[in-house]
Design a protein around this nucleic acid. Structure first.
Length: 419
RNA sequence: GGAGAGGUGGCUGAGUGGUCGAAAGCAGCGGUUUGCUAAACCGUCGUACAGGGUAAACCUGUACCGGGGGUUCGAAUCCCCCCCUCUCCGCCA
């Protein structure tokens, strides 16, 4: 949610931004709606003030009772009308996107993203590297057929050495983040509509959500929803900021409308697994915290020995809540291309306004809405990148050094066994 | 799933129709005292929205005692529905 005062004082700014983000809310109409609402609100409040004043006289002078009674119907009608107008304003405000950082590139889609830099080198192979789908089949560590049998296409099993590799990756990642000042959480894997709205997933990505029948609950699309929602309707002590949280959860997404996109392997699926980074901070600190999360992501990928590039995501590729976003695209040897493995967004006060997450500085008296940063640490995709990066001529896959203490093995053999 | 109890300001906790935005205590904040700390004493201390004011201070109004609806001139207080929390029993990872 943006500050409605900006809409009132500078509608052109909002209009330009809405246009750039493909938002079709009629800004002029909204400004007028809001003005109408406030005029009516003033009227209603004046009537109430009069009513309250006269009511006090009723105790000593019963005669004014009839006068107040006569006001009731008009008052009720105007009250109802103002509630209705407010609801309309709120409904439109909910669709207004966040503003962009000044350095967000212009572009239609991910092709417009600005390449910032590469890290590491592409691995060299003496053979044609397999993509992860081929590797699964060879190693028998992922099973999409049974995933579809038991659940649906888009679900899958990791098993044996593959599951152990994934386990090691997630455990190691959480440990690294804790060492870097993050508090570890286990969160609910469902959340109510208000939480999804507050984090900006509703109304913008409504069709991506798995809803639970007959309940005000949905499967989470990311632990961002439950971790940011954690501090909803709270005022945080500025002296304790920034707060950095991490959690591992499954993430569910219907991916409706994305059929046919990256269907090979398990790159785009209905359920994946993620270690997340969430930061709550003061507004002036969010740029630095955004970088902090990016550095964490890079630290992890560097330790894993993966080759990747960092991009500054363009306007056309960014969701409505985002102010600025860095994606990291790892090299997938089998795909022979870079693919997104992590995503790191500065949401400024967009979520905090919707959820009511404020900060208060006792020393200076400064108050306001927090800024939130939401960044991937690792997901299944990182494990896929590992598989493609570390495949050997003999069909085995070498485990990155840092994960070996957690896997207990250093190589996954072509038969799926580990040694 | 069955039975009961309860939801009031940051916390504890009074308050059953107007004088209640709400007693008191604690915490917080400002001050006095003190060599320092502690204690004591005095003062202060909710949020949101709208309007005014210099986008500060501040002033005015409205709303808020879990949420929604109702009764009434007037509701924290009476009535209805819902949500949540706690306790006991049952079941169970």
């Amino acid at each position: 949610m943006i500050d409605i005062k900006i809409l009132r004082e500078n509608p052109e700014l909002v209009k330009t931004n809405a246009k750039r983000r493909g938002c079709d809310v009629d800004i002029d109409a909204l400004v007028k709606l809001d003005a109408d609402y406030r005029a009516l609100l003033t009227e209603v409040e004046e009537m109430r003030a009069l009513r309250n004043k006269l009511s006090k006289e009723c105790a000593t002078n019963p005669a004014v009772r009839d006068q107040v009674k006569a006001m009731k119907d008009t008052m009720a009608a105007k009250e109802a009308q103002s509630v209705e107008l407010k609801a309309q304003v709120d409904a439109q405000m909910a669709w207004l996107p966040n503003f962009f950082a000044p350095d967000v590139p212009v572009g239609a889609d991910d092709k417009g993203n600005q390449l910032l830099y590469h890290v590491g080198e592409k691995p060299q192979f003496t053979f044609k590297p397999a993509d992860h789908q081929e590797l699964f089949e060879r190693l028998g560590i992922i099973d999409t057929t049974r995933g579809a049998k038991v659940a649906q296409a888009g679900f899958y099993y990791w098993s044996g050495a593959g599951a152990q590799l994934l386990d090691a990756l997630f455990f190691w990642t959480k440990r690294e983040l804790v060492n870097r000042g993050f508090s570890l959480f286990y969160t609910p894997c469902v959340a109510k509509e208000h939480t999804l709205f507050g984090t900006g997933y509703l109304p913008f990505f409504a069709d991506q959500t798995y809803k639970l029948e007959g309940q005000d609950l949905a499967l989470i699309g990311t632990s961002e929803q439950t971790l940011v929602g954690y501090h909803g309707d709270e005022t945080l002590d500025a002296a304790k900021l920034p707060l950095a949280y991490t959690a591992f959860t499954p993430c569910w997404r219907t991916e409706s409308g994305s059929y046919g996109k990256a269907t090979r392997g398990i790159f785009r699926v209905h359920q994946f697994h993620k270690v997340e980074q969430i930061v709550f901070c003061r507004p002036e600190d969010s740029e630095a915290q955004h970088i902090r999360c990016l550095e964490n992501e890079e630290h992890l990928l560097k330790q894993l020995g993966l080759h990747y590039r960092v991009v500054n995501v363009c306007d056309g590729d960014m969701g409505a809540p985002g102010y600025k976003k860095y994606d990291i695209e790892a090299w997938f040897a089998g795909f022979n291309d870079y693919r997104e493995v992590t995503s790191n967004t500065n949401l400024t006060d967009f979520q905090a306004r919707r959820l009511g997450i404020k900060y208060s500085d006792r020393a200076t008296g400064q108050k306001g809405f927090c800024h939130t940063i939401s960044a991937t640490a690792v997901t299944d995709r990182v494990a896929l990148a590992i598989l493609e990066h570390y495949q050997q001529a003999d069909g085995s896959v070498v485990v990155p050094e840092v994960l070996r203490p957690f896997t207990g093995f250093s190589r996954i053999l072509p038969n799926g066994k580990a040694e």
